[in-house]
Amino acid sequence: MLEFRLVQGSLLKKVMEAIKDLVTDANFECSSTGFSLQAMDSSHVALVALLLRSEGFEHYRCDRNLSMGMNLNNMSKMLKCAGNDDIITIKADDGGDIVTFMFESPSQDKISDFEMKLMDISSEQLGIPESEYQSIVRMPAAEFQRICKDLSSIGDTVIISVTKEGVKFSTRGDIGSANIVCRQNTSVDKPEEATVIEMKEPVSLTFALRYMNSFTKATPLSNSVSLSMSSDLPLVVEYKIADMGYLRFYLAPKIED
């Protein structure tokens, strides 16, 4: 059987809100390492990878590796019933066809059980090679969200270019064009407000803004976001989940015909 108890239950609620519009059904993999998920969107353009390490849970028991197929919309409906301060426990039996979500209020005066049917999902697991990226940009997550939203009112695609001068986000559409340049800025009070550009080589790649905007639904998970880029590799947009792991989005680039 498995049983995970997560004191900061809101993390799980935020993860679901971040991925449920991109991925419909997914297998959650449970092992002694932690609770993870890898899934592609229906167009096979983007890939989501989640890891919540076992050490981040108050209690984590997983007797044997278990794959739980879930409809993310239904899971989100259930997790929406948990309060933001609730402790969430996930329970399942080996070979069973249901998962139980238990929500406890912080004062222990309200305890709810929600049972959800599991599904058989045949999904392809992709091997993601470890890569050295030509450029990595770390910036405030809210700033990145604002840029993606602003640019998508003008164009459908964004060109992200990293040079010594900084990172440039450009778009073009019927009404005109836009360029937003963010320079490295480490002279801020809090490290999460910094913009840090690690450039080994300049890089310029084109991506669909529709996907970028979808990824920014993960903004409540983390103060900062990192963008890892190399020519001819998918972009990695990573939100770290404090003390537990990460939520990563991989996005295939667009190429000129």
Binding site: M40, S43, H44, V45, A46, L47, E124, Q125, L126, G127, I128, P129, T157, T206, A208, L233, P234, Y250, L251, A252, P253, K254, I255, E256, D257
Partner: peptide
């Protein structure tokens, strides 16, 4: 115009 590439072109099925 641009062509959208697929993630499966970069990462292989395991």
């Amino acid at each position: 115009g641009d062509t959208q590439r697929s993630i499966t072109e970069f990462f292989r099925v395991t």
